[in-house]
């Protein structure tokens, strides 16, 4: 097992290379999820604001 991690003396080159591979791809995979959460949150806020504005507008119109 130790022999596997030693990589024949090249451990300090092989493992960082694999680390770069997985870290960069993990960034690529998770960054859209964060962006998506931001978008849905903004959209929900907008919809909620519009809804209150609409109900207020109908209430104001009602007496006339």
């Amino acid at each position: 097992m130790m022999q596997f991690f030693a990589m024949g003396g090249f451990a300090m080159y092989v493992w960082p290379a694999y680390a770069v591979f997985f870290i960069v791809l993990a960034w690529d995979w998770f960054s859209p999820a964060l962006r998506r959460r931001r978008i849905t949150r903004a959209l929900r806020g907008r919809i909620a604001r519009e809804r209150t504005r609409n109900t207020r507008a109908t209430r104001a119109e009602a007496p006339t």
Binding site: M7, G8, G9, F10, Y13, V14, A17, Y18, F21
Partner: peptide, 10 residues
Amino acid sequence: GDAYRIIFIH
């Protein structure tokens, strides 16, 4: 040696 194993991602 074992350094070539980077090929599998490179």
